[in-house]
Amino acid sequence: MGGNPKVANNKPEDQKLARGNLALKNSMDARTPVRVIFGRQTLKASNTSGESSKYIYDGLYTVSNYWQERGPYGKIVYMFRLNRIPGQPKLTRKIESKVKKPKACFERCVLDDVSQGKEKMPMRAMNAVDNAKPPPFTYITSMIYTECYDPSMLSGCNCIDECSDSKKCSCAVKNGDEIPFNNSGAIIKSNPIVYECGPSCKCPPSCRNRSSQRGVRYQLEVFKTESTGWGVRSRNFISSGSFVCEYVGELIREKEAKERTGRDEYLYDVGNGCDDTEDSFTIDAAQYGNVGRFINHSCSPNLYAQNVLYDHDEKRMPHIMLFAAKNIPPLRELTCDYNMNHVCNVSDGIKMQNCCSGSPGCTGRML
């Protein structure tokens, strides 16, 4: 508008034959009709604090002429004469209104530290849905083994450096003569089982083959979701392959897990499925657990579970370590495919578990 000082404190100046003015001039030269939207207004809606944008579509017009004249601030402005093309349906000029409501976000901290001071950094619980706090539980940082736990200690390596020679490190030999982590501690590729250096090894704690034993290193927080209860996100960027957390709880036999009804969402099966043998095990994080118990299932996850052994050699009860499957931007919910082929109890046998992730390719079942 020739530098209207009422708009963003612009200094008045002469208009140029450019942008919208040039487009109208070109339409006149090419005899191309233009669509006219008449009377745009921005008003306060009567029952909301948002803004209401109102428009009137007035049909097709031709541009027949243009000229210059002095505007109200003494500067040159371009004027155009538009003629409505005859034969168009008569318009009622009814105003179409579209109300844009500002997205309210009143997220607040409902718990200062979910970890109860047991992690290196406090983990807040945030809620923008209601005033609820996460359900009470006992926070632990390592597995609780019940009487079913009786594995033999895993033999360690004799490396006095940081296991720099993977062909001489006995732990690396179990991984196919290679350390499965890069120098930044990110896992290079998934394996059925990863053998890390552990308490029986002579290498120092800084050895890169101890990547998942250093605890949570990202600023994680628990938050209330709209449809899947509590979830977990990171306030930091997480690069692909990075260790996020371990899924810990009580390690129990599969048979006992079937009897613990009402805890399906906290059971992580690390055994061979639902059968009558006592060879399968389950992690129950309902009463004892860490931040991993809040990580939701998704059919399109950004984390994956890696079986890791470092303090024993019992393959039936590996540590469940969660690693980033891709680069994860800050505040993106962390999810994992729990691959629940079945959930069992004594009376019903196999029963289905619904999936509410809503992710692309979601089947609606944790199958």
Results as ranks from 00 to 15, higher is better:
Ala286Ser: 08
Val346Phe: 09
Ile76Phe: 14
Gln15Ser: 10
Val346Gly: 04
Cys355Leu: 06
Lys100Ala: 11
Tyr78Ala: 07
Ser184Gln: 12
Thr62Ser: 09
Met79Gln: 09
Thr228Trp: 07
Ser359Ile: 06
Lys100Trp: 12
Arg84Ala: 09
Ser240Cys: 14
Val343Tyr: 03
Arg108Ile: 11
Gly364Cys: 04
Glu250Gln: 12
Asn175Leu: 00
Leu303Lys: 00
Thr228Phe: 11
Asn175Trp: 01
Gly2Ile: 11
Lys120Ile: 05
Cys274Trp: 06
Lys11Gly: 01
Cys344Pro: 01
Arg40Glu: 15
Met79Lys: 11
Val216Thr: 14
Met126His: 15
Val63Leu: 03
Phe137Asp: 01
Asn236Val: 04
Lys6Thr: 13
Lys94Gly: 15
Glu119Trp: 03
Thr228Tyr: 06
Thr138Arg: 12
Lys224His: 14
Lys202Ile: 00
Asn191Gly: 05
Arg332Lys: 09
Trp67Lys: 06
Tyr304Phe: 08
Arg253His: 08
Ile193Glu: 01
Phe137Trp: 04
Ile188Trp: 04
Ala132Asn: 10
Asn302Lys: 04
Ser184Met: 10
Asp348Val: 13
Asn341Gly: 08
Gln219Val: 10
Gly358His: 02
Ala18Trp: 10
Lys224Cys: 12
Ser64Leu: 15
Glu147Trp: 07
Lys98Tyr: 05
Cys109Met: 05
Ser184Arg: 15
Asn4Gln: 08
Glu226Ser: 11
Tyr288Ala: 06
Thr228Pro: 08
Glu147Thr: 07
Asp284Ile: 03
Gln353Thr: 15
Lys103Asp: 15
Tyr66Arg: 01
Gly215Ser: 14
Met121Leu: 11
Asp269Ser: 10
Ser211Asn: 03
Asn158Cys: 10
Cys157Trp: 00
Ala257Cys: 05
Ala132Val: 11
Pro318Tyr: 00
Ser347Cys: 12
Met121Ala: 08
Val173His: 01
Lys255Gly: 15
Arg365Gly: 12
Met153Pro: 03
Met153Glu: 06
Pro72Lys: 12
Lys118Ser: 01
Asp165Ala: 11
Val346Arg: 09
Leu322Ile: 03
Tyr268Phe: 12
Arg31Lys: 13
Lys44Met: 13
Trp67Ser: 11
Tyr55Lys: 14
Asn47Tyr: 14
